[in-house]
C-alpha cells in the first residue's frame, strides 16, 4: 500500500507534499515516513495519507480560474488614488504575482 507524505518544516508552516512510502498500515507508514522523509530536511511534523484516498482534478479536466477575462477579481484592475494601507499594498502585490504566474503557462 502506498502512502503520500506531507512534510511541515516548522510549527506554523504548511504541510507540503514531499513524497511517499510503501507500508502495510498507518502506523508503519508514519514510522517509515519519519525516516525516509524526515531524517535530513528540517521537520516538525509529517502527515501520511493513503494514496488511493487522494482525488485529483487537473488542468485537463477543468480550466482553473476560467478562460474568459476575470480581471475584476484582482485588486490591480481598480483605479484609486493616494497611499494605500500597508496590508492592502501587500495583498495587491501578492495578487499581481499570482496573476503573472497564471499568465505564464
Amino acid at each position: 500500500m502506498i502512502w503520500e507524505v506531507f512534510r511541515q518544516e516548522k510549527a506554523g508552516n504548511y504541510h507540503t507534499h514531499c513524497g511517499n512510502v510503501h507500508a502495510p498500515d498507518r502506523e508503519m507508514a508514519k514510522q517509515f515516513a519519519a525516516i525516509q522523509h524526515g531524517r535530513r530536511k528540517p521537520t516538525n511534523s509529517l502527515w501520511v495519507v493513503p494514496s488511493e484516498e487522494i482525488g485529483e482534478i487537473d488542468a485537463e479536466d477543468v480550466a482553473f480560474g476560467g478562460t474568459t477575462d476575470k480581471a475584476y477579481r484582482w485588486a490591480t484592475a481598480y483605479n484609486t488614488t493616494g497611499e494605500d494601507a500597508v496590508e492592502v499594498v501587500e495583498s495587491e502585490d501578492e495578487q499581481a504575482t499570482a496573476e503573472r504566474q497564471r499568465g505564464d503557462d
Binding site: Y72, R73, W74, A75, A77, Y78, N79, T80, T81, D84, A85, E87, V88, E90, S91, E92, E94, Q95, A98
Partner: peptide
C-alpha cells in the same frame, strides 16, 4: 483571506471614487 481581500477594498474604493 488577506491575499483575496485587497480586491475587495480596492473595488470598494473604486466605487467610492
Amino acid at each position: 483571506v488577506c491575499f483575496e481581500e485587497g480586491f475587495h477594498v480596492k473595488h470598494g474604493e473604486d466605487i467610492l471614487r
